[in-house]
Simulated scan of single mutants.
Amino acid sequence: MVTLALLACGALSFGLSLRLYLLAQRTLGAARTGSLFAFAPFVGAALAFAFGERDDVLLVAAAGALFGVAVYLHGTEAHHHHHRHEPLDHEHAHRHDDGHHTHAHDSPVTGEHSHPHRHDSTEHDHPHGADLHHRHPHP
């Protein structure tokens, strides 16, 4: 019984972490997800410190602080300018209240859903980061 409980716990944990990682990839992009994932060893170092490990504390703390600032800057980067979206056909989970998914459905749809859809060419101005819908050149 204990073995089954451990297997279930591991499968759930691994499955959930994989689902969250893939969601982060889609939402944040590969670079931001990678920087957050790379910060994990510093969380482990902080836990080790809490449990009494004291080797190279200043060096690890300084590196962690610098890395934390980098992750913060990377995660909060956004810019605001007039930009053009080229036409795009793709499929991914989306909502219709995000300003980029204005296509119609035969029957009303609310909340997040996924299906193949087309984005027509559009130009607009709003703050954004480098995500699935903002891959455009900067002059």
Rank of each mutant, 00 (worst) to 15 (best):
F14M: 09
R118E: 03
H74C: 14
L22N: 14
H138R: 11
L28R: 00
H119L: 01
H79D: 11
G44I: 05
S121Q: 10
E77K: 12
D98E: 06
L28H: 07
Q25N: 07
G99Y: 04
V109K: 09
P87C: 00
R32C: 04
H80D: 15
G29L: 03
S17K: 03
G29F: 05
L47R: 10
R26F: 02
D106R: 04
Y72P: 00
F42R: 00
D120T: 01
L28S: 02
A48V: 04
G15M: 11
L18V: 13
D98R: 05
P108D: 10
D97G: 05
A50W: 06
V109N: 03
H126I: 04
P137F: 04
V57Y: 11
A38E: 12
L4K: 13
A65S: 15
H101Y: 07
F14K: 08
T3A: 12
H133G: 06
C9S: 10
H133S: 07
R135D: 12
H126M: 12
H119I: 03
H101R: 01
A11I: 05
R19Y: 10
H103A: 01
A8R: 06
A46P: 00
A31Y: 15
H85C: 00
A61K: 05
D97H: 06
G34I: 02
H80L: 12
A62N: 11
D106V: 02
S121T: 11
F51L: 15
L12A: 11
E86F: 07
G129C: 07
S35Y: 13
H124P: 02
A130P: 04
P139D: 15
E112A: 14
G44N: 10
T102I: 03
R26L: 07
A45C: 11
T102V: 11
A30L: 15
T122E: 08
T27V: 15
A45G: 04
L132N: 03
H92S: 07
C9Y: 07
F51I: 10
L66G: 15
V2K: 12
Y21F: 15
G15W: 05
